[in-house]
C-alpha cells in the first residue's frame, strides 16, 4: 500500500497535465475550425515549394 503514496500523486499530476494542455489548446483557438484542419495538411505551404527555375532569357 506504500506504493499508493507515490502512485496517487503521480496519477493526479499526469491527469492535471492533460487538463492544462487541453485548456491551453482551447485558448489557442485550436477548436475553431475542425474541418479545415483536416484539409490543411493537403495544402502545400508557399515557403516550402521548390522555387521556380529562373526565367531569365537565354536559358534554353
Amino acid at each position: 500500500m506504500n506504493a499508493l503514496v507515490i502512485l496517487v500523486p503521480a496519477a493526479l499530476f499526469l491527469g492535471l497535465g492533460a487538463l492544462v494542455a487541453f485548456l491551453w489548446s482551447l485558448k489557442g483557438d485550436q477548436y475553431e475550425d475542425l474541418e479545415g484542419a483536416a484539409w490543411r495538411v493537403l495544402v502545400e505551404d508557399e515557403e516550402d515549394k521548390v522555387p521556380a527555375a529562373d526565367p531569365a532569357p537565354g536559358g534554353r
Binding site: E32, D33, L34, E35, G36, W39, R40, V43, E46
Partner: peptide, 23 residues
Amino acid sequence: MRAIEGALTQLDGVTGARVNLST
C-alpha cells in the same frame, strides 16, 4: 481554401488571410 488564401495574400498590404471551413 488554397485558392482563397492565395488570392488574398497576393494583394498589396495583406498580412494574413485564413479560411475557416467549418463556418
